[in-house]
Nucleic acid binder design. Sequence first.
DNA 1: CACCAGGGTGGTT
DNA 2: AACCACCATGGT
Length: 217
Amino acid sequence: MIRFDALYEALYAAYGPQGWWPADDAFEIVVGAVLVQRTTWHNAAAALDALRVKGLLTPAALARAELAVIEGCVRRAGFYRSKTVRLRGIARFVIARGGFGALSALSTDRLRQAWLDLEGVGPETADSILLYAFGRPAVVIDEYLRRLVRRLAPADAKLTDSGLRAAVADSVDDSARLNELHALVIAHGKAVCGARPRCEECVLRRDCRTGRAASEA
DNA sequence: CACCAGGGTGGTT
DNA sequence: AACCACCATGGT
């Protein structure tokens, strides 16, 4: 199994701090987490700005906004019809639960399940919300991380998400490092380890197509 | 033109 | 449980 603490150090040394959602408004982080689904952050941020301009980045405002108005802001982030309905549902959920202060009183397991019960919040988005909006030590498992493990450690290819989650949590436990790790995995994926790998430039000095270490220069 | 992007849902096998 | 089509816009 991969040493994820060592992987973290290697990626951090190569790419540096990513500055993902330090501690902005929690609701804005949640909205951003939904908007960015299957889209670039560039387009999600533009949609986020459009919502902010219309004053819709609060649970109360978004909960009672017209769907057509929300759609106009969300359109550029893609899947805008479903995302619009889901975002308004999330706003109503936050209000019904008494706000983020009340939600923060829940255990991490209860909180995760509460978000998962919502339309539009799956495992990856739920863990992103736990990690970036609530500061809980959640492990975000995305396609980049699966690829990385699949290529870096072919022997672990049959690992399930929950198995991978346990393995990561075993070597990286604090939320600050998990926060950075998720961002670093994506930075690395976009740089060299995406759908089409560029192993010649890989900072991990390993050919992910053969699983063997690259020759030292 | 094809392909990808910081996923999730519902249906089928 | 594994696969599939679908959602939809914007960038390269």
